[in-house]
């Protein structure tokens, strides 16, 4: 197995009086796309938010690139090299597409070569470059959120349900973009409900249920084993068509 860029050891998270994560153990290998799957309410988003420090782990440790980041603040974690694309298109609606992108560039400037590559992945962004991000369609907003995360090379991308609520054609565009992103050697932890997308993209997989990781392994193995899918995710055979 490749070396791990991110490791969660027995992470517990409480939100108010609710105990959401019950000792998560998770490893994200460097240079791979790891899928984080699970039913609604399994704790996937909480896991990403805990990694980012948006919610503090009440117990356990988060190690990133060999460094304990459990108690770091969110800006410190972001500056350490983790980019986060939250659920529901985490864009700034009042700012233009350009301003959204520049915000994510740490020195305030975007490398023109990288921008050209991003426009290749998401052509709509070039077209609407000077428009307010709030005026974009749902798919375009999601593209912008992902583009913002990759505006500079980052050690790890955390992406929460990028295909949620998108039309099938847009989902295929998104999958293609992730494939290209993978080909550059990016490390990605991707939360996804769409099993078809997960099967096409994932190298490894972790499945969560009730705040725990209940399965870890290669994505290809889970994709082949329909009984396991049924057991872990409650997927019917129709979901694979």
């Amino acid at each position: 197995m490749k070396d791990a860029i991110l490791r969660l050891d027995g992470v517990h998270t409480h939100i108010g009086q609710y105990h959401i994560l019950h000792g998560i153990d998770l490893v994200v290998p460097r240079g791979q796309l790891t899928m984080l799957l699970g039913r609604n309410g399994a704790g996937k988003t909480t896991t990403l938010r805990t990694i980012m420090g948006l919610w503090q782990a009440s117990k356990g440790h988060v190690h990133f690139d060999g460094r304990d980041i459990t108690k770091l603040s969110t800006p410190d974690i972001a500056q350490a090299g983790i980019a986060y694309v939250p659920e529901n298109m985490g864009i700034f609606a009042d700012l233009t597409v350009r301003e959204n992108m520049i915000l994510a560039a740490r020195n305030g400037e975007i490398d023109p070569k990288r921008l050209k590559w991003i426009f290749g992945l998401f052509p709509a962004l070039e077209k609407f470059w000077s428009l307010a991000a709030g005026t974009l369609s749902g798919g375009q907003k999601q593209m912008l959120a992902i583009a913002r995360a990759i505006v500079e090379p980052r050690e790890l991308l955390l992406i929460d349900e990028p295909t949620k609520g998108l039309a099938p054609a847009i989902i295929m565009n998104m999958i293609q973009a992730f494939r290209e992103l993978k080909s550059t050697g990016a490390t990605i932890l991707l939360v996804e409900q769409n099993f078809m997308a997960a099967r096409l993209l994932g190298d490894s997989v972790a499945v969560m249920d009730d705040g725990r990781v209940v399965h870890r392994g290669a994505m290809a193995e889970l994709a082949e084993d329909t009984t396991l899918q049924q057991k872990l995710l409650g997927l019917s055979m129709d979901a694979h068509q």
């Binding site: 980012m52 948006l54 603040s73 986060y84 700034f92 609606a93 009042d94 740490r106 913002r148």
Partner: peptide, 10 residues
Amino acid sequence: ENDFRAEALG
């Protein structure tokens, strides 16, 4: 617009 998102950008 969203202080959490701004923090997540560093």
